[in-house]
């Protein structure tokens, strides 16, 4: 068993364990921290797959920016503790459906790809960020610029949505207000 394969299995175990830990943790903060570890292990997978730029973006964007936003909202709303939320009796059908999804996915992979395609860090041109930038800024120039507009719209949307409501606006009816 080569070193790379050992590394793969250790990282895969970490990734799956932290994903399960996120699902069953009783605190949203712990769930977020599990997810950070998961993102970092996926970033190391990207390094193994000769994609160093994507790996660093993963750490900076996901493990950095997005998870900080999550933690910020958790602490802003004071939602750290969500004990007793999981009901084990209701777990059967979701587990069955997720299991069906997993079996379908693995079946399709094994049917379409087969097991004889090997990859390793061979130091090919794929790991060169400058070559990737050349493709990004020529063939994918228009999508890149649309991304800028998307981020601007998301920023404006977040500001508009989180603005405090005006006092003069009619208050929202609580649950059960059903008069015609």
């Amino acid at each position: 068993m080569s070193l790379e394969l050992v590394l793969f299995f250790v990282l895969a175990a970490i990734a799956i364990a932290t994903a399960v830990g996120m699902l069953i943790s009783r605190s949203t903060v712990y769930a977020a921290l599990h997810l950070v570890v998961n993102f970092v292990s996926v970033a190391i997978f990207y390094l193994l797959l000769d994609a160093p730029f994507i790996a660093l973006s993963q750490v900076a964007v996901y493990a950095g920016a997005i998870m900080v936003l999550f933690l910020f909202v958790i602490m802003l709303l004071g939602l750290e503790n969500i004990a007793g939320e999981l009901e084990w009796k209701k777990l059967l059908w979701p587990l069955v459906m997720a299991g069906i999804l997993l079996v379908e996915g693995v079946f399709l992979v094994l049917q379409r790809i087969g097991q004889n395609v090997y990859v390793g860090t061979t130091g090919t041109a794929l790991s060169d960020p400058s070559l990737m930038a050349r493709v990004l800024f020529t063939d994918y120039m228009l999508p890149f610029q649309v991304t800028a507009v998307l981020l601007l719209v998301a920023m404006i949307g977040a500001i508009v949505l989180s603005k405090p409501e005006k006092k003069s606006a009619t208050p929202l009816k609580p649950d059960g207000a059903k008069e015609a």
Binding site: S2, F8, I16, V109
Partner: peptide, 10 residues
């Protein structure tokens, strides 16, 4: 060398 199908299964 890691088979690429392992990554897809993960």
């Amino acid at each position: 060398m890691v088979p690429v199908s392992y990554y897809i299964i993960l």
